[in-house]
């Protein structure tokens, strides 16, 4: 292991409702959007919508497109793959994906 692993506890798993997200603030002011999908999986992406520059992805609707879990940006509805961060509508654009762990019912987000 070469890099130092940093995990930030953000909230209880029960704070999330399936199909929606919340935002969390990491050290250094980074913002992550954390989503719970209908099948119970938790995903974390950068909260900043790369198209508008606004920190709003956590407020998007979660669903699937052709089976791929996605969030739709609340600003102009571009879809981001929750597992890879890549934009479904414009593959040249993507957002950072953060590792997630759940311990004792608490969600932890790892530094990239």
């Amino acid at each position: 292991m070469t890099a130092l692993e940093v995990w930030t506890p953000v909230c209880a798993l029960t704070a999330l409702i399936p199909g929606r997200g919340v935002a969390a603030l990491l050290a250094h002011g980074e913002q992550v959007a954390i989503f719970l999908t209908a099948d119970g999986t938790v995903h974390a992406l950068s909260n900043v919508d790369p198209f508008s520059g606004a920190a709003v992805l956590s407020r998007g609707l979660v669903g699937d497109l052709g089976g791929v879990p996605v969030v739709a940006s609340p600003m102009h509805k571009q879809h981001f793959d929750l597992t890879t961060g890549s934009c479904v509508d414009d593959p040249a654009v993507s957002v950072a994906v953060y590792p997630v762990r759940i311990e004792d019912g608490t969600i932890l987000v790892g530094g990239p």
Binding site: G19, A38, L61
Partner: peptide
């Protein structure tokens, strides 16, 4: 959830929800 499981497929999206 009941509607999509009985009359649709998948988990829904920003159009149908």
């Amino acid at each position: 959830s009941e509607l999509v499981s009985r009359y649709g497929t998948g988990s829904g999206c920003d159009i149908c929800k």
